[in-house]
């Protein structure tokens, strides 16, 4: 990929401008959210922010609870940065970028206790529902963290439990109930990038590469922070972090609105 615009991006940021004409704190358009894109998943979503496209799918299964939490179910989030979505990615085992994406998205949901794990328990110590969410990139045009968070939360909200045979306890994946996941909060991660000392949201690939640091902040509708991840080579001042958190909670509310618009229909 041609990546020769680093200096120009830095210069423009200094003037409060960006290559594509947006303001520093403006998301790309369109933002599109679609649910139930996969009949084989218990819940699914496809999200588009600008040219970035991500899918997320939820699968539910019944497993034995972990020994230290016999009364709880569990959640696992996995991410695949597919070679379909960018020439930068290769087939094979997940690299550090996909591991980080999965873990940051996972913490945002898990640490907020967004899903009531106790309600996922069927028989203590024996059976509980486990939630596995897979994030699949379709086109990586930047800002995967926010797009993935948006896709995962939407897929979780759209998910419905499959029918379970009361006699055998077997899951009939072909039939869904009307029961949704016990989701009490709606945390969404927003990543604020620092480019030439300026704070920027929703970067393109080129802007990501031109940035010196980033901070992902997951927050819910009350503004409670449930996960953070600082990335990039440079460090951040406490003042910068304060400003980044404000910006992230504001944008998190903005994206939450987009989900609710779609799901209310």
């Amino acid at each position: 990929m041609i990546n020769g615009n680093k200096e120009t991006i830095a210069q423009l940021a200094n003037e409060g401008k960006r290559l594509d004409g947006r303001s520093l704190t403006e998301f790309r358009q369109p933002i599109e959210i679609e649910t139930d894109i996969s009949w084989t998943a218990e819940g699914s979503a496809k999200v588009r922010i600008g040219e970035t496209v991500i899918m997320a799918g939820v699968k539910l299964s019944i497993e034995k609870p972990y020994n230290d939490t016999p009364n709880e179910g569990g959640i696992m989030i996995n991410a695949e940065l597919t070679p379909l979505s960018s020439e930068e990615y290769e087939s094979g085992p997940p690299g550090m970028k996909s591991i980080e994406l999965a873990r940051v998205t996972d913490r945002g949901i898990r640490e907020a206790k967004a899903i009531d794990m106790k309600k996922l328990c069927i028989t203590p110590g024996e059976k509980a529902w486990f939630v596995i969410v897979d994030i699949i990139t379709i086109n990586d045009a930047g800002n995967l963290f926010d797009a993935a968070g948006l896709a995962v939360l939407t897929a979780l909200k759209a998910a419905r439990f499959p029918v379970v045979d009361p006699e055998t306890g077997a899951i009939d994946y072909k039939q869904k109930t009307k029961v949704s996941l016990p989701l009490s909060k709606e945390p969404l991660p927003i990543t604020v990038y620092k480019i030439n000392g300026k704070l920027v949201v929703d970067p393109t690939n080129e802007e990501e590469n031109a940035s010196e640091a980033r901070l992902t902040v997951a927050s819910d509708s009350k503004g409670t922070i449930s996960a953070m991840q600082k990335g990039g080579e440079d460090s951040l001042t406490i003042d910068e972090i304060s400003e980044m958190v404000d910006l992230a909670t504001e944008k998190s509310a903005f994206l939450r609105e987009q989900i609710n618009k779609v799901l209310k229909k």
Binding site: T40, G57, I132, I136
Partner: peptide, 19 residues
């Protein structure tokens, strides 16, 4: 060619990622 079923694309349980 590289053919991949997404982990949630099977009609039963989740498919483990990987070839």
């Amino acid at each position: 060619c590289h053919y991949t079923m997404m982990p949630f694309s099977g009609s039963g349980e989740r498919i483990r990622p990987g070839k």
